[in-house]
Amino acid sequence: MATKKKPLPTGAGVLASTHPLPDYGAAPAQSREERIEWYRLMYLTRKFEERSYQSYQTGLIGGFCHLYNGQEAVAAGTFAAVTDADPVITAYRDHAHGLMRGIQPGPAFAELYGRATGVVKGKGGSMHYFNVEKQMWGGHGIVGGQTALGLGLAFATKYLGEKKVCFCYMGDGAVNQGTFHESLNLAQLMQIPVIYVIENNMYSMGTAVERHSAPVELYKRALGYDMLGVRAEAQDFDIVRQVSWTLAERARKENMPAILELMTYRYRGHSMSDPQLYRSKDEVEEYRKHDPIEILREKILAEGIINEKDLDSLEEKVRKEVVAAHDWALASPFPAQSEIYTDIYA
């Protein structure tokens, strides 16, 4: 125990940056339907993972299972700043990124259960969700390994003159991998439109950030590469979306990369087998008071774009969808033995 007290969200939005932030104005206003849909996707992710938590405990899921509970506004807010034509890639805590980029809950559960109907046919599991149709490029198991791939995806969009931006996600522990630093240098040197989103949940597995990183302000890693680094709060969807929009516009218009450090918190352990001896229950409870889904829920109700009754019924529908998806996945067959030898070579 005995790690430092974690900073709680203040509502300040952008907390710090290495250079002045460029002014690309406010992100375009979202329609009523868009806001409700992002809320739905965040709620779906939460309910999907709560069900996954139960499934893991009852032995339905083998191997690892890393949950995103508490971090949902990071994926949602960044995704909502771009379109499904812009590539995204992440590490192994990838359920949210998959579900928010078109993977349906049925194939998502089926993958966790190792079934033939899984999103990657039972060959990848929890850590390897892919949905290339919607530019979701994984789901990667080696910490930091995806940072060079995100660089390459962004390089390709620039090479082809597409004016896109790639969001490449990573946990705070990944900042200590060499590949990340090679990628930062290459990105700035070659002016590649990639945004490295550090999902700073303040723990590298069980090692608190002040115990794993010499500079605890991770956005400052950008300084070593003359790159723009930004730190922002990430429990509020709209804060995340606005700062992501600014950096995405800059990447599109100026081909400039950036680090976006988003301060967030995971409610569950690193993986399912984590007893969380490194932090107190009080700390987790304090953070639960700043829940990203509750925050967006209150906002859209206050905005009057949906009433409580309709929102309740939307949530009820999602819960039923999750149960049905889980049941469907469990009823799905395991892959045929012949599948061992397919998809190795193109």
């Binding site: 791939l149 660089l151 390089f155 390709a156 590949t179 090679e182 990628s183």
Partner: peptide
């Protein structure tokens, strides 16, 4: 930066 440019190439190849 062998890891960096090898990974860059893999990502670019994934994209086509």
């Amino acid at each position: 930066s062998e890891a960096g440019f090898a990974g860059l190439c893999i990502g670019a190849a994934m994209y086509g």
